[in-house]
């Protein structure tokens, strides 16, 4: 197996395991690029004047789909390319603005195998700024059972996200 396909297997994961944190210095470019990449043209994500004077926020702020993309990147940085997202649940508690340093930090809360023989890890991730929780995400991520397994081959009844 090439280095590019190296992925965690489910037996390498334990409940309580902490994922390495990811820190990002957020700029206006981060916010605008993320919004436009997600085809979100709403002005509060690119127009400072609109965000401040119409929305009453302190600046433009990161949109939800881009936050989802950050969570996905964080999880698959950890799992490797065979890690396959099954489910994500978000709860938004606050906004992320230019000038913030956002930190994503996750902990494994469940590890198991479903009835179809697919390995799964549940990871709870917090997106924080200065220690304040801005968004929480609980993700269910399929992981290979062995080096020869590949969750992406599962379809129909064999895929139970």
């Amino acid at each position: 197996m090439s280095a590019a396909t190296d992925s965690l297997t489910v037996d390498q994961v334990t409940v309580g395991q902490a994922l390495p944190p990811l820190s990002c210095d957020v700029t206006a470019t981060t916010i605008v690029l993320g919004a436009l990449a997600a085809r979100d043209w709403r002005p509060m994500h690119h127009d400072h004047d609109f965000a401040v004077n119409r929305n009453g926020t302190r600046d433009i702020f990161m949109n939800t789909p881009n936050q989802a993309a950050w969570f996905e990147r964080y999880l698959t940085d950890w799992s490797g390319p065979k890690g396959r997202l099954g489910r994500m649940t978000f709860r938004m508690k606050g906004s992320v603005f230019p000038g913030d340093t956002m930190v994503l930090a996750g902990t494994v809360t469940e590890v198991g195998t479903d009835g179809a023989g697919c390995g799964w890890a549940t990871v709870d991730v917090e997106l924080t700024v200065g220690g304040d929780i801005k968004t929480t995400c609980s993700a269910r991520l399929a992981l290979p059972m062995t080096d020869d397994d590949n969750p992406w081959t599962r379809t129909g009844d064999q895929w139970q996200p």
Binding site: T30, L36, A37, A38, A69, E72, R73, P81
Partner: peptide
């Protein structure tokens, strides 16, 4: 573009052979 917006280097999206 979406990968670039979050610096997602997952080779699934960049390496066609993989």
């Amino acid at each position: 573009t979406s990968c670039a917006s979050v610096e997602n280097g997952n080779p699934l999206f960049w390496d066609d052979d993989l």
